[in-house]
Amino acid sequence: MRSFPIGRTALVTALIAAAAGLSGATAPATASSASGAVRDVCPTARPGQVRCLAKVRTDRHGGRGVRDLAAPPAGYGPADLRSAYDLPATGGANQTVAVVDAGDAANAEADLAVYRDTYGLPACTTANGCFRKVNQAGQPSPLPDDQGWSVEIALDLDMVSAACPDCHILLVEADDAGYGPMAAAVDTAAALGATEISNSYGGGDYNGVDQYAASYRHPGVAVVASSGDSGYGNPSAPAEYPSVVAVGGTSLRRADNARGWSESAWSASGTGCSAYLAKPAWQHDPNCPNRMIADIAAVADPDTGLAVYETGQATGWIVVGGTSASSPLVAGIIALAGNPDRYPDASYFYAHADQLHDIVTGASSGIDCGGDYLCTALPGYDGLTGNGTPNGIAAF
């Protein structure tokens, strides 16, 4: 493996931060789909805001309504994910997974009902106490204006449902995509009893990035965030906060092998070395002197994307990817295992990496790092996929 001197790595990350992160702007996206038929769900973030990381396939349309699984929607469904990651079908009934998003999705509960009904998952509604939607202050009204995140919200709710059908779900809608409102929504989620909190959004690494770090640190609560969809370069906040589990992305395909699946690093999976946040004591990779992301990974490539149902921005069944998918999926798996207190940070995954699928193929479409683990999937830890992907719940 080629190694870069520490000084060079630090310089590269500082230059990346200077170019893309000083104002808190999100790093520019790179090509994310071999098909090219992909668009970003959310608009470009303005200074001081984050951006959701969902990417929707524009060549897959499945119509509205509950589907007959003899002809299932395009994209992977819950049974596929259970098979790929060897997940139990039950568990997590005492867990509440919160998803934090910007703005309202008026059809969120109704769309979630179609997804769950299609795949035979138990109902999760306001009426039965499983589902709850609140504003960033924790109240059912007034809800914020639509910020164009409704596909992101549907993806989050569907992925939590796929991973943990028995979990309760809390949707916290921030007033807008500003760092402050999003952080306030995370605090609200914790105050309302969430045991896991998923954050499928990010902004760049910049001087002062730790301003909102305390909102993403809640003892006894597992806080999870997408690593980003721009490949190797400027790391993403909140994923880079040391109290957060940073979730990268993979390409997941059926295979004729013992697992039944093959998995490689998604070329756009976010990875990078922070120029500003110190390295946690539990992280020991050699060529990044500060906090490195990601910590763990799961399916995110839109070309091997997930079936999602949404009728606000979309027309029903769509195929969605991005690390916006892998974050709520991993949050749901943590809930499925039922041990959120293990995650004051991501150290548990580093101590149990041998119980994950080690991803050893794939490279970043971002800045070239010469084949180093910073941007290339290699045996053991690498930035694109962290310590690996779920292999049952033993590592959770």
Rank of each mutant, 00 (worst) to 15 (best):
H218V: 05
P286K: 13
G220L: 13
A246P: 02
W261N: 09
S274D: 03
N290L: 09
D256Y: 06
L277C: 05
V223F: 02
V247W: 07
H284Q: 13
E240G: 00
A268Y: 04
Q283Y: 10
C288E: 07
D229H: 04
S226M: 08
S269W: 06
S251C: 11
D256E: 13
A258P: 01
V224S: 03
T250Y: 09
G249A: 15
A239N: 05
W261I: 13
P286A: 15
Y276F: 15
V245D: 02
E263C: 00
A222G: 05
G233F: 01
G270C: 11
A275G: 08
S243E: 09
R217Q: 15
R259T: 13
Y232G: 01
P219Q: 12
P280G: 12
A222E: 06
Y232N: 00
S236A: 15
P238S: 10
V221F: 07
S264V: 15
A222W: 06
P289E: 12
V221H: 07
Y232Q: 08
A265N: 03
V223G: 01
Q283F: 14
G233M: 01
S251W: 04
K279E: 09
V245Q: 05
A278W: 04
V247N: 07
P219L: 12
N287K: 02
G233D: 04
D229G: 06
G220I: 08
P235S: 09
S243C: 11
S274F: 01
E263I: 06
R253K: 15
N290H: 14
S227C: 09
P242M: 10
N287H: 08
P286G: 13
S226L: 02
Y232S: 03
R291H: 13
V244T: 08
N287C: 09
A281W: 14
S243L: 12
G220A: 12
V224N: 02
G248S: 01
P280C: 12
S251P: 00
T271Y: 00
A281I: 11
Y232D: 00
S274Q: 10
L277N: 07
A268I: 06
D229Q: 08
R291Q: 15
T250C: 12
R291M: 15
V245Y: 05
A281K: 10
N290E: 11
D285F: 07
H284M: 04
G228N: 08
G228P: 04
T250D: 07
Y276A: 05
S269K: 07
V221W: 03
K279R: 15
A281E: 14
W261E: 11
A265I: 10
S243H: 04
D229I: 11
N257M: 14
E263L: 03
